[in-house]
Amino acid sequence: MKQSDSACGSCADKSGCSEKGCPSAGARPGESAEQHERRMLMQQRLGHIRNKILVMSGKGGVGKSSTAVNLAMALAQQGHAVGLVDVDIHGPSVPKMLGLEGVRPKITEAEDAMLPVNYEGLKVMSIGFMLEKDTDAVIWRGAMKAGVIQQFLADVEWGYLDYLVVDCPPGTGDEPLSVAQFLGTDAQAVIVTTPQEVALNDVRKSITFCHQLKMNLLGVVENMSGFVCPHCNEVIDLFKKGGGRQMAEAMGAPFLGAVPVDPDMVNAGDSGKPVVLAHPESEISKALQQIARELVDKTA
């Protein structure tokens, strides 16, 4: 990507220059001209995005990525301009779930930004697009991960979006913290959990994370909530049921809805087509579409 001129001579090795036109003018203490420029560019591009939603979970294996993908697709189906960014540096799954393995993002004509990959009208970016092979391991420390996340936000030409859905890795570590800080005070969160207590214990930490960062929590989604037997239609609570709702109520968090266990979700993800597209009339799709409508109401 192209870089602008360095700081002027009067502010070399310093920050906060008052010279008009200097790239470091208005920089924060300790911030170089280049860092200031990237921050300003990121703010400019993010300024075209109305709603920034982090999809988080304190626990892995709760279906967070599949929830993020299908909520983003459901929002796009409802006529909104939507972007989806996968910041799970060590386990990017969005390319697989959308059948985009091996795809590489294009560069703008001015060579100053990457263009997100288009999937059925959904704008997508993932670290998975940068890997030579799906089996490549990303072995990076925190500073490098933060730099890549900033690049996804500053160097991607998202254009105007109603929603940017961010698929975060599990936990409350480097990646969710970096995303929250880069997106700014208007970032909001959706927490995904499963009903059993072993998941809820960790998910409570994500709610505390939002409170500590003063991030607006849009609500909690209870995933894998009950299974309807395809043979007898009996509802089987494989992972209990209602734990997410009870936890949300106990912690004063909104409850967005419950999503049942459905083999169609697994098959759709493996085939590279979100379940809300592959099986729009299924109960799981209806549940996800209703949660998307709840998000629209809450962000209106």
Rank of each mutant, 00 (worst) to 15 (best):
Q3P: 11
A7K: 06
A7Y: 07
S10W: 05
K14F: 08
G16D: 03
G16E: 05
G16H: 06
C17Q: 00
S18F: 06
E19V: 11
K20V: 07
P23G: 08
A33M: 07
H36D: 12
R38Y: 10
M40L: 15
Q44N: 15
Q44D: 15
L46K: 12
G47W: 13
I49A: 14
I49V: 14
N51M: 10
M56Q: 12
K59H: 03
V62L: 00
G63A: 05
S66V: 06
L71A: 00
L71S: 00
A72E: 04
A72S: 04
M73T: 05
Q77M: 02
G79W: 00
G79N: 01
H80M: 13
V82M: 04
V85M: 12
D86K: 08
I89W: 02
I89H: 00
H90F: 14
P92G: 01
G102Y: 12
A113T: 14
V117P: 04
G121F: 00
L122M: 03
M125I: 12
G128V: 03
M130P: 13
M130T: 08
K133R: 07
D136F: 04
D136T: 09
V138Q: 06
G142I: 10
V148S: 08
Q150T: 11
Q150V: 10
F152S: 06
A154T: 11
G159A: 07
D162G: 03
Y163K: 03
G173E: 10
L177F: 10
L183S: 11
L183N: 09
G184V: 10
A187G: 15
T193E: 00
Q196H: 03
I207S: 13
I207G: 14
T208K: 14
F209K: 05
F209V: 01
K214L: 08
N216K: 15
M224R: 01
M224P: 01
P230V: 05
H231I: 06
L238W: 01
F239V: 05
M247H: 08
M251C: 14
A253T: 09
D270Y: 07
G272T: 04
V276I: 12
L277S: 07
A278P: 06
L295T: 13
T299D: 07
T299H: 11
